[in-house]
């Protein structure tokens, strides 16, 4: 299975990464890998070479940090891989648009909702919000929202 080969390749490339393995894929994701933000491009290139496609990019807003979550899949049963990376509030992750052409729009959406800019994406206009929008609605500080948590409150240390 491609997903298992990818696990091996990612473990080799990122020896310090935190792996969560769910062979049954019960929660929708077979391998969830927490890597450093700077390794995301390399990891995406590995998955691209193996024929994975990028399903979605999203972010989680915690009080201490952002977390970027990239879901990849290939056309085999239960092969979803989630790459996750902590992204400080003022950090600028690099874009995947030269690896996956569809990433451009997904990054624009994340920028709309969270205000995270992606360096290397040639088109960072707003996608879903008005072009003059100066707010980022999915931040926990925007509008009516629940409590903002630290990351460890939900995922542990």
């Amino acid at each position: 299975m491609k997903a298992d080969e990818m696990e091996k390749a990612l473990r080799e490339e990122f020896p310090g990464a935190l792996f969560a393995v769910d062979e049954s894929g019960r929660n929708g994701v077979r391998y969830s890998v927490l890597i450093a933000l700077s390794g995301m491009r390399k990891a995406a290139q590995i998955l691209n070479a193996a024929g994975f496609f990028l399903e979605t990019i999203t972010a989680l807003d915690f009080s201490d940090t952002f977390e970027l979550v990239y879901h990849f899949n290939c056309y085999e049963p239960k092969s979803r891989i989630a790459l996750r990376a902590l992204c400080g509030k003022d950090q600028t992750p690099s874009s995947l648009v030269d690896t996956f052409r569809g990433a451009g729009w997904l990054e624009r959406e994340v920028h709309d909702f969270f205000g995270i800019s992606f360096s290397g994406n040639p088109d960072m206009r707003s996608l879903l919000l008005p072009e003059d929008a100066d707010y980022h609605p999915l931040l926990k500080s925007f509008g009516k929202s629940g409590d903002s948590h630290k990351r460890e409150d939900i995922y542990g240390k």
Binding site: G28, T56, L60, H71, G146, H149, D153, I154
Partner: peptide
């Protein structure tokens, strides 16, 4: 392919 991604606190 549609998916809901829910995080619960």
């Amino acid at each position: 392919l549609t998916a809901y991604y829910l995080v619960s606190d």
